[in-house]
Simulated scan of single mutants.
Amino acid sequence: MVTKDADSKTTATKRPAATTSKAPTSSSAAVSRTAASPSRLRAGAPAKSAAIPTATSSASSKAPGVKTSAPSKPVSSLKSPAGSPTASKPTGASSSSKTGATAGKAGPKGGSKGGAKSGASKSSAEHEAAEDSGPDPAAEAARRAELEAKAAAEMEALRRAAWQAQVEYERKQEAKRRQQREEEAKRKKEEAALRKSLLEAAYDGEDDQIRAGLSRAREAGYLRPDPVEAADGHGNTLLSEAAAGGAVSTVQMLLQLGAQPNSRGEFLRTPLWRAAFLGKEEVVPALLQGGADPRIGNEGGELPEHVAPAAIKEVIKAWDVAKTDMLIQQIEVCEEGEEGCAGLQELLRRHRPAAACAGG
């Protein structure tokens, strides 16, 4: 009996540790008291036994997981506290609940962490697979080299086309310049030939040829600004050549067409100076009446009367230079407008009916 009491006490002290509520403690105490005094159960002590169901009921109500039984059953169970089903079940339940809670706590966290890790590893694996499945560097380099070669070929084609266009343009420009040079050379050649023919015709007194040549020069734009003033390389004009040749009609015609009577050619000689020097007595009066000034000498200061024969000297001395001044003034006015030219024409008619200005 002493051993049973000790075991009951040990079991009574261990059972409350397996439960989470205080109700099993009171129930165990009641059972241990009953087990400790079996004489009371035999005697049928009502006061003490009545408290056992109350404690048991309260224990059962408070601890649903703990089973209550007759007094003999707890006594037998108390004999083997290590293998007691009552003690093992709460312990197992507690350990399983703790394990389950730990698993429950660790499960979501571990699952989420494991899922995140597995997702990250999957994404990295996919990324690595995408990188592995990317374009081949050798193929990409070959493609770039092909594109660069194609672009270089296109640039070369454009460069050649531009060069050919430039060459063609230069050829056209050179042909145009050559044509212009040829036309200009032809023009100069024709102009020189026309000038020469006019000078020769003036010296020879061929008036019709002179008129035709002057008309042609005006139409072609040769011998500008005025074909009447055409001169040779020394500055000798058509009038000077006509005076030197002694062609009176040509001198009068050229004066009527507006030729300058005091033009200066080689050695600054005027038409009057040349006619006086060469003894062309028939043209000296026509020159004086057309506005030739006997006071103009050559580059050495020699006047026409100084180099003229005696007959021409008498004509020049007999000429009134006041008329020359008036004629020169009228010529200048005639060059500015038609009104002055009309006055000069009237003046020339009084003194020399055969002479007139360019507008007459």
Rank of each mutant, 00 (worst) to 15 (best):
S96L: 14
A63Y: 02
S95D: 10
A36L: 14
K122W: 05
S121V: 11
G115E: 12
V75T: 05
P135V: 13
G104E: 10
K48E: 15
G100S: 11
G92H: 09
A35T: 11
S133H: 05
K98L: 13
S76M: 07
V75P: 00
P108M: 07
S58T: 07
G100L: 14
P71N: 11
V75E: 04
K48R: 11
A45C: 07
A116L: 09
D136P: 00
D132R: 01
P135K: 03
A70V: 08
G115D: 12
P90M: 04
S77P: 01
S124D: 14
G44Q: 09
S37M: 11
K79N: 11
A63N: 04
A87F: 05
S69E: 08
V75W: 04
S124P: 00
R40L: 15
T68A: 05
A138D: 15
E131K: 02
S58E: 10
I52A: 03
G100D: 13
R40F: 09
T99I: 10
R40N: 09
A116R: 06
G100T: 13
A138I: 12
S118C: 00
E128D: 06
A50Q: 08
P46I: 13
A50L: 13
P53C: 01
G65A: 10
T91G: 03
T99M: 08
K67E: 04
V66Y: 01
A106P: 01
V75C: 03
S49K: 08
T34V: 15
S57A: 08
A55L: 09
T54Y: 01
P46R: 10
R40M: 14
S94Y: 02
R40K: 12
P81K: 04
T102E: 08
H127M: 04
P64L: 07
D132C: 00
S94W: 01
A45D: 15
R42L: 15
S80T: 07
T99D: 14
G110N: 05
